[in-house]
């Protein structure tokens, strides 16, 4: 970890801003994981980190390495695509698993089905 290589200022400023914004959103998401009350509310917390958090930090890395190596470095896009495509799938699976478990335990706070309750029943 010896040296941060000298970048021109016009590149250093966006890298710094993107890093701070991305880290800030990720931290807020994780604080939400602590502060929100129920499981279904906490399910929203990681998406802060996986949308703008990942996006900003990957963009910072792309700008940094592109200027550093004076060529376009875009392979960070792969991590971005991977995260964007996989996070919704895992969160949906988790939500369904939690719903299934809550229904098995007879929790009244979760809806019994996706259909609205029949008023005649």
């Amino acid at each position: 970890m010896t040296g941060i290589v000298d970048l021109p200022l016009w590149a250093a400023v966006p890298v710094a801003v993107l890093l701070l914004v991305g880290a800030g959103f990720t931290l807020t998401g994780s604080i939400g994981l602590l502060r929100l009350g129920s499981f279904y509310e906490r399910l929203h917390a990681p998406t802060l980190g996986t949308s703008l958090g990942v996006g900003c930090i990957l963009l910072a890395s792309m700008v940094f390495f592109s200027v550093l190596q004076t060529r376009l470095v875009v392979h960070e896009v792969l991590v971005g695509i991977l995260v964007v495509v996989t996070t919704p799938v895992t969160l949906m699976l988790l939500a369904r698993a939690a719903l299934h478990r809550d229904r098995l335990e007879g929790d009244d706070k979760v809806p019994r089905s996706a259909r609205p309750p029949d008023p005649s029943a």
């Binding site: 991305g22 990720t26 994780s30 994981l33 990681p46 980190g49 996986t50 990942v54 988790l94």
Partner: peptide, 15 residues
Amino acid sequence: VGLDTLYVNGMLLLL
């Protein structure tokens, strides 16, 4: 959910 967030945070830290 915590573990999922942990992974993403670790990944960003590595970047």
